[in-house]
């Protein structure tokens, strides 16, 4: 049987991807950020999953103009890196695990999630920057990836509670997949940031750190943070943290926090990152 063995959460700032691609990781601005990922790069060597279910949001690359799904599950065989305006990131193609994706899709619909199936799309920095941070500069990603995109932009966006339930349902779906697979769930995005208006550059270290404190062992409290509260406290794009909730719920009750990292800033954003192992 398949099982969810652990999870990773991380911010997915495009500028981090650019620094990675341009070999700037040793520059004074970027070095302390990339050092925050030294742990996970070692950890993943002993904990390479067969499949990552990667929860992220699309940034007007594939899913925000004509069709805006609340929850979109990748159903294509592979996903190319999107050209977000400065060329495609030179990273490997993301390859899907179609059998698990089909199983998860079916179980989620049985569990009354109204997911959208994506037969063709490019994946943007929300998906590829975390892969680079964890796996480094590789020829091929060492595992399959099922991308699951969440609408965090066009109103209305899903609640924290709904995201939590989705994570639980993903956990149940993986558990009932008959093949023996080691699955991780990653949540990307956040932490506090605002990319618009006279309030641009907002960072709320207190909010972010409280979120990190509660996420491991008291995540229930985080479910009830509304979009309004994210907007007020963590900026217009701070709501990306709901992707972390999906990851956390997919891991079940007990987790061990293997690593935590927080730093301000990367470009406009506070960078947060955790590594959890499931206990159950």
């Amino acid at each position: 049987m398949a099982r969810i063995s652990g999870g990773i959460a991380t911010s997915h700032v495009p500028a981090i991807g650019a620094a990675f691609d341009l070999g700037k990781t040793e520059e004074p601005y970027w070095k302390p950020i990339f050092e925050g990922y030294e742990y996970v790069k070692e950890w993943i060597k002993d904990n390479t999953p067969d499949v990552v279910i990667l929860i992220y949001n699309d940034h007007a690359s594939s899913l925000m103009l004509d069709i805006v799904p609340t929850f979109a599950l990748g159903f294509a065989e592979k996903f190319e890196s999107a050209d977000e305006g400065w060329g495609r990131r030179p990273v490997p193609v993301v390859e899907n695990h179609l059998d698990l994706a089909a199983h998860v899709a079916e179980q989620l619909v049985i569990d009354e999630f109204d997911i959208t199936l994506i037969n063709e799309m490019d994946v943007d920095h929300g998906c590829t920057v975390p892969l680079s941070l964890v796996f480094g500069d590789v020829e091929e990603w060492p595992c399959k990836v099922i991308p699951l995109a969440v609408n965090v932009t066009q109103f209305p966006t899903p609640s924290g509670e709904r995201c939590w339930k989705l994570g639980e349902a993903i956990r149940n779906a993986v558990k009932t997949f008959p093949e023996d697979l080691n699955v991780q769930v990653w949540g990307t995005g956040g932490m506090s940031h605002q990319l618009q208006g006279t309030r641009a550059g907002l960072i709320n270290e207190e909010f972010d750190n409280r979120f990190l404190d509660l996420l491991a062992h008291e995540p229930e409290e985080l479910k009830y943070i509304t979009r309004l509260e994210y907007l007020r406290e963590a900026g217009t794009e701070g709501i990306e943290m709901i992707m972390w909730l999906i990851m956390r719920a997919a891991l079940g009750y007990g987790v061990e926090e293997k690593h935590r990292f927080y730093r301000v800033p990367a470009s406009n954003t506070a960078v947060g990152h955790v590594v959890y192992e499931s206990k159950s």
Partner: peptide
């Protein structure tokens, strides 16, 4: 901004400069 940043990228502006 997720759409608009593509104008900035076309100009070679960083996201930070655009914001």
């Amino acid at each position: 901004m997720y759409f608009l940043v593509k104008i900035a990228s076309t100009d070679g502006w960083s996201a930070q400069k655009a914001v």
